[in-house]
Design a protein around this nucleic acid. Structure first.
Length: 444
RNA sequence: UCCACAGUAGCUCAAUGGCAGAGCAACCGGCUGUUAACCGGUAGGUUGCUGGUUCGAGUCCAGCCUGUGGAGCCA
């Protein structure tokens, strides 16, 4: 009786005869010798079949094998430098579980992303994609571990909501028993209620934006973790964020160094620098730096992108240019109130500015966290709700939170897909999840 | 939504307004050390769609569709 082992564990079975169950990823024939690259989700191993080394039926089965056929292969594990990964399986028997149809669409060559996205259900089988999905899982675990270990309680907030959270973004509308309902764009407002019951909390789940965004950093459905902390001001918040993000990055480095280097060709030195504390810039300081960069830019196209109006929000080119000045994530705080959400607290003595803070990832990855200190003042909220054209009735419960024991509190939202893209060094968030939802793309 | 570029075999791409091509994949055959192997052979096309210009359109023009890159909005 032979043991069935995961490919990632074969190093512990050198010299033993084992069975591996998986799929044929690639195959090279050399006459009476065949090299089969097998993958099982844990890794890839090269299985070598000699005609004389296997029963006639196994040799015939191997001859029929098509790409992505599922197989059970038995043989001795040997250390061999000629194989990628360092181990090889000398096949003594082979059984076909299911023969794949001819013409598997994804070849071991360059493909366009449009084609690959249409084949996403098959594309995720490739080593680079599985590495990304595995790192995503580690990032999510690191997020939860850090929060759970630092006194936060997970509270799930609703996906179906009666109104906009921030009112600015377009929402997906659903028919809720004849009434309009919306898919959530944030759990934050509910978390502001939850902290007054439980202390620090976080929600973690999918959020939805019906914006017609067509960029490398936007999806219509994405995962966001939103911690909210009572008795915390903006400075407290920044300390939490830098500890939290450093932990996430270092956790991935500790677990996935090989995948980052070999499959994703990630520059690890850039990630190793991600340790608290992070540089902090006020909006006004950042705007000054951006205007200097604007003046120094000679390429007219790039210059136009760096143009910044008084008290304007930063666009993607501004964030990229700013973050390029540093080799760590940077905080930009005290944005103009006009460009931030209605619930932001204002800066004492400077009503023009809000107690908000964004965290910009290095290497041009832009905003991965947005957050701030929430206002405790009922009058300011009422005034902002009206100014933003939001339905007052939908926010009565939210105003209650200020009426019954308001405390200074702060929170933030971290976008999982942007974090995965940054840590993995991906050019686009569409590869950060198994089945991304993008503008007008829901298949497969 | 706006701007730019693209759409030819399953994939990646060629083709001065004049016979529709290659590599890979598939299929058949050969090879005992391949790594996106190599060698020989077979098959594979409504050139995104609709209309127009022309003796003649993959090529030029118009509209539409789809894709890619960028902007805005944001995490």
């Amino acid at each position: 009786m032979t043991a069935w082992v995961k490919i990632s564990d074969v190093g512990a079975h050198v010299g033993e005869t084992v069975t591996v169950k998986g799929w044929l990823y690639a195959r090279t024939d050399k006459g009476k010798l065949k090299f089969l690259q097998l993958r099982d989700g844990s890794g890839v191993i090269q299985a070598v079949v000699f005609k004389k080394g296997v029963p006639e039926s196994a040799w015939e089965a191997a001859e029929q094998l098509t790409q992505e056929s599922s197989v059970e292969v038995t043989g001795e594990i040997r250390a061999d430098d000629r194989a990628l990964g360092g181990y090889e399986l000398s096949v003594t028997d082979l059984t076909v579980v299911a023969l794949a149809d001819d013409g598997y669409p994804i070849q071991l060559k360059e493909h366009g992303t449009g084609f690959l996205m249409a084949q996403r259900h098959l594309w995720i089988r490739t080593p680079r994609q599985t590495a990304i999905l595995r790192i995503r899982a580690t990032i999510i675990k690191a997020i939860r571990d850090w929060l759970d270990d630092h006194g936060f309680t997970l509270v799930d907030t609703p996906i179906l909501t009666p109104a906009a959270v921030e009112g600015t973004s377009t929402l997906f509308e659903v028919d809720y028993f004849g009434e309009p309902g919306y898919l959530t764009q944030s759990g934050q407002l509910y978390n502001e209620a939850n902290i007054m019951a439980l202390g620090p909390v976080y929600c973690f789940g999918p959020t939805f934006r019906a914006e017609k965004s067509k960029t490398r950093r936007h999806l219509t459905e994405f995962w966001m973790v939103e911690p909210e902390i009572p008795f915390a001001d903006l400075e407290d918040l920044m300390e939490v964020e830098e500890q939290f993000v450093s932990y996430i990055v270092q956790s991935v480095l500790a677990k996935h160094r090989r995948e980052l280097e070999e499959l994703l060709e990630r520059d690890l030195t850039a990630l190793e620098k991600v340790e608290a504390p992070f540089p902090r810039l006020s909006y006004d300081e950042a705007a000054t730096k951006l205007r200097e960069l604007y003046d120094a830019e000679e390429d007219p196209e790039k210059k136009a992108l760096l143009y910044l109006e008084e008290d304007d929000d930063f666009g993607a080119p501004h964030e990229t240019a700013l973050s390029a000045l540093y080799d760590k994530p940077i905080f930009v705080y005290h944005y103009p109130a006009a460009v931030k959400a209605f619930y932001m607290e204002s800066v004492e003595g400077e009503p023009r500015l809000s107690r908000s803070v964004d965290l910009l990832a290095p290497e041009g990855y832009g905003e991965v966290i947005g957050g701030g200190q929430r206002t405790t003042r009922v009058e300011l909220l009422e005034q902002r709700i009206e100014a933003h054209g939001l339905p007052r009735e939908a926010y009565e419960w939210y105003l209650d939170l200020r009426r019954y024991g308001a405390v200074p509190h702060s929170g933030f939202g971290l976008g999982v897909e942007r974090t995965v893209a940054w840590i993995c060094g991906l050019p686009h968030v569409r590869e950060t999840g198994a089945f991304p939802r993008m503008l007008e793309k829901m298949y497969p």
